[in-house]
């Protein structure tokens, strides 16, 4: 707030200068990842000089394919379709998983019956769900939703359950000594206590869902990144295959960033991470 106020008082030239300085300092603070990616890009470009372009296309060709996707509304529509599927599947899995996780957290009987089953389901590979979905359902969107639900629901339920279980009995006793209503206990302890678990569950499942949905889209879908990847493979168009992957990863990183932002807002009360093992 303070810096904004001072900035508006500066002359345009000074303001631009200050902005450049800030950009430089931001880049300097991130120099390690910039260097790593720079090295990868350079190595890739060098490799592309020696290998045929249908195997290792040049950085320029990939960039062109990437821009073609981002600039075209219909192609971007494919990305949004995939993201929409991920989001819808995750919301569905989140709601059901949270209800299940909360019940497990509060009722020992439910916990005893469901916990082993959930762990068993967690062991089933995503590809198996794809096969089951194709056999069981004919509608493409139903298949995809089912695969996402099967893949992510146990994860949500287990993480939320764990989050509720980890709420300390000391806090519970402290509040219970005050005789709160059920609603007060929920709003003052359970809800704030499970927010870290909710955020973790979204972080974990977003990555999982992205991997699962692409596989699900390979079969039967006429839109979406998975479908476009399949087309690229059939036509042996390596730049497009890479560009599609990059577009999806970009969108995923943006979503992850949104979650990190929420985490920053919601978990302000947490002690800042003090440098861990790597110093």
């Amino acid at each position: 707030m303070e810096s904004e106020a001072t900035r508006s008082e500066l002359s345009p030239a000074r303001a631009q200068e200050a902005w450049h300085a800030r950009l430089l300092s931001v880049l300097a603070a991130r120099k390690e990842p910039i260097i790593s990616f720079g090295v990868i890009l350079a190595a890739w470009q060098v490799a592309s000089f020696f290998l045929p372009p249908y195997l290792v296309p040049g950085v320029g060709a990939i960039l062109a394919a990437f821009i073609e996707i981002v600039a075209s509304l219909t192609l971007l529509g494919d990305v949004l379709t995939t993201m929409g599927r991920i989001f819808l599947g995750l919301v569905l899995a989140f709601i059901t998983g949270t209800i299940l996780g909360v019940f497990m957290g509060f009722t020992e009987t439910v916990e005893k019956y469901t916990l082993p089953v959930l762990h068993f389901i967690m062991g089933i590979p995503a590809l198996s769900w794809v096969v089951f979905a194709i056999i069981w359902f004919s509608h493409v969107e139903t298949r995809i939703a089912f695969i996402l639900l099967a893949g992510c629901l146990p994860n949500y339920a287990l993480i939320i359950h764990d989050g509720i279980k980890s709420i300390s009995k000391e806090y519970l006793d402290m509040l219970r000594a005050l005789r709160p209503t059920r609603k007060q206990l929920f709003s003052k302890l359970i809800l704030p206590g499970m927010i870290p678990a909710v955020l973790t569950s979204w972080k974990v499942n977003l990555g999982l869902a992205a991997r699962v949905v692409i596989v699900a889209e390979l079969v039967g879908a006429t839109r979406g990144v998975g479908n476009k990847l399949l087309l690229a493979q059939e036509l042996f168009e390596m730049p497009k295959a890479i560009a599609w992957t990059l577009v999806l990863v970009t969108f995923l990183l943006i979503s992850q960033f949104v979650i990190l932002f929420l985490e920053h807002k919601l978990l302000r009360w947490r002690p800042a991470k003090q440098g861990g093992m790597a110093t």
């Binding site: 005789r179 007060q184 003052k188 009360w269």
Partner: peptide
């Protein structure tokens, strides 16, 4: 042990009993 709720500030912790009442 203090049993302060970590997500509440000192003031918010101090008033929790009054909130409940």
């Amino acid at each position: 042990t203090d049993r302060l709720l970590p997500w509440r500030t000192a003031l918010e912790n101090a008033r929790v009993g009054l909130e409940i009442l």
